[in-house]
Design a binder for these strands. Sequence first.
DNA 1: TGTGTGCAGTATGTATACACAGAGTACACG
DNA 2: CGTGTACTCTGTGTATACATACTGCACACA
Lengths: 204, 204
Amino acid sequence: MILAGEIRPGEPVYEVHYAKLLGMSRTPVREALQSLARDGYLEELPDRGCVVPTRSADDIREFFEMRQILESAAARLAAQRATDEEIARLKSLCDAYVGEGDLSRWQEIGAQFHAVIVAAARNRRLVQELASLRTQIDLSRRSVIHAGDPWREAAVDDHRAICEAIAARDEEAAYAAAERHVIHSYETTIRAWQPASLSLRKSS
Amino acid sequence: MILAGEIRPGEPVYEVHYAKLLGMSRTPVREALQSLARDGYLEELPDRGCVVPTRSADDIREFFEMRQILESAAARLAAQRATDEEIARLKSLCDAYVGEGDLSRWQEIGAQFHAVIVAAARNRRLVQELASLRTQIDLSRRSVIHAGDPWREAAVDDHRAICEAIAARDEEAAYAAAERHVIHSYETTIRAWQPASLSLRKSS
DNA sequence: TGTGTGCAGTATGTATACACAGAGTACACG
DNA sequence: CGTGTACTCTGTGTATACATACTGCACACA
């Protein structure tokens, strides 16, 4: 419901309310809320329950900084460890972009592209952390009014560069390409949000 | 109790048992267990409760890989953002090593050293993630018999190198030095555990 | 002898009742 | 008219009772 935007940032989340709404008792609702709070979808106030957190510009910066760190590391490890099948799959996903006009299908391809890379890094904790981060970022994006499609700009070129670097087993190139990709994503996001913004570290 | 080694890996953790032991009802115990499970200190089995997880060599590799990724990123950001006060504090901590013979005091200095760097990176999520990782690694170390002090070898030199790179505002040097430091830590840990081991990515 | 079914026993999942803490408000007093 | 205090109301923190699922064993049957 938070992800679907049915509960808006700043809004309090009462246990009894959602227990009634969902037809269950407070206990499982309570546990779910704690779980959500641990993952950052809710903020717990002592003795005063939960609220959906509102993200500051600094929060967004930190999220993208983490994403930059982890995605670039994933790309580097993928360049080292990806199987030939995984590389072939990355290439075919890159090619799938060109003829695609539908936005949701487009995002689906992008998600699969990233999933293959992270999986190729062979690190479960990294997979988990990036998934969490990705959801957080999507959530932050949603809590903000932005017009049009925020991606799509240089993303295809970025993806192709990452793909080629991994295929060439060039760890540093894959690292740098992934870094650039996250920077682009950050810039489009923050531009759609507010003019003044902090910048991430540029790739050298 | 898990950290203190009072509950050993593989051992089941029953709600009622610890409720009685701690003089509370099942509810808060249950919530605590879920909290611990979310942080990786316990493994939850469906309808069968919790056990303290046993770590495989692959788990250790993944932990250190993550630590390498995050610590090096933290060092790079610290080189960019640390205040002069923080740099001075790093230097004094480095100097504090030399005259120190006591192991626990020595570890305390090391922990402070890392804390200053991570704080200087100005990213709360990074702080949190590294703290969690660090505890996990300590826990994994403890679940294993190892003789003597596993650190101390090249750690002082490593710390000094990191400190100098940050003081010089050299981001890439700080990054590489932190990477090397984690590799050393991994190697001593895995050597104390079992001879055959996977290796982390070497710093280029 | 092997396999499948049924029956406890135990521990978790859920519901509910009660206790407590915090916020807001009304009222009394200076 | 301002300030402090007590009261109430709301919602969370905790305890306990009941329901359910899984495991192991025993027993019957092929």
